[in-house]
Nucleic acid binder design. Structure first.
Length: 249
DNA sequence: AACTTCTTCAACCGCGACTTC
DNA sequence: AGAAGTCGCGGTTGAAGAAGT
């Protein structure tokens, strides 16, 4: 069967964008808005793949982008978000207005990693630096395990409180923690979504997959929030992960 | 000045998730 | 139900400029 290519590779421009291409893309999006990336290149008269147009707009041309150096506050925010979220650059970017996931990812790899090493902190585990564990490039098994197994609510403005284990990421067991292999393996597989049309305003959906984690089925529920915030807690014998969710009015 | 090595970051690629039909 | 289309994410690449020799 196979997937059809995202675009015709032949007769397509690749590499750096020219000023004229940028102008056409900006002009088209200003007139028609974002989206419909697949058909955009033809409509805008660009010999580019739709994906390439989307990336160029999101990472470089969007008017709300904040160009320039990262501030010390942004550095620290990225570090603390990364300690919770791992390489979930899009989630991290959602908390830094004007910054893109690609920009943060590059900044992490070129600046922050080095900064953390100089502080004696392992950027992968956010624990004490241990050169024997840290790979020189790419994601370790542990890091991948964390990012693979914790699905973070796709809303901005979410605070995470982890009461499980102050020294570990969200109390999640990882491939490099075989000693805990026999303990409860946490795979909350949480998802929190915006309310559907047929739900009451300010409702949120909370679903926990109980495959690997003994979640009380009563917690699989739709929680109605009557105040400006609500807290959802999932616990096992050894761990608690709490999502504290402020709502926008 | 010429060459090499290092650093940065825009852009590409592959894949999974989601949507549409 | 499932195939096809589309979007978005995260890892990786490579060109360009900076720094070092």
């Amino acid at each position: 069967m196979g997937r059809s290519p995202c675009c015709e590779k032949e007769h397509m421009n690749k590499g750096a964008w020219t000023k004229e291409e940028d102008r056409r893309l900006i002009d088209h999006i200003n007139r028609h808005g974002e989206g419909r990336w697949r058909s955009l290149p033809k409509a805008a008269g660009l010999l580019r793949c739709g994906k390439s147009c989307r990336l160029r707009w999101i990472n470089y041309l969007r008017p709300d982008l904040k160009r320039g150096n990262f501030t010390e506050e942004e550095d620290e925010l990225i570090i603390s978000l990364h300690s919770i979220l791992g390489n979930k650059w899009s989630f991290i970017a959602a908390r830094l207005p004007g910054r893109t996931d690609n920009e943060i990812k590059n900044y992490w790899n070129t600046h922050i990693k080095r900064k953390l090493y100089s502080r004696g902190i392992d950027p992968l585990t956010h624990g004490p630096s241990d050169d024997t564990r840290a790979s020189k490039r790419g994601q370790t098994t542990a890091e991948k395990a964390v990012s693979d197994r914790v699905m973070v609510p796709s809303m901005t403005g979410i605070d995470y409180a982890d009461e499980s284990n102050a020294s570990s990421n969200s109390g999640v067991t990882t491939a490099e923690e075989p000693a805990k292999e026999n303990g409860p393996r946490i795979n909350l597989d949480l998802s929190i979504g915006l309310p559907r049309e047929d739900q009451q305003p300010r409702d949120i959906c909370f679903a926990a997959d109980a495959k690997d984690f003994d979640v009380d089925q009563t917690k699989r529920q739709i929680c109605t929030c009557s105040s400006s915030t609500t807290t959802i807690t999932a616990t096992s014998d050894s761990s608690t992960i709490r999502f504290h969710i402020p709502f926008c009015s």
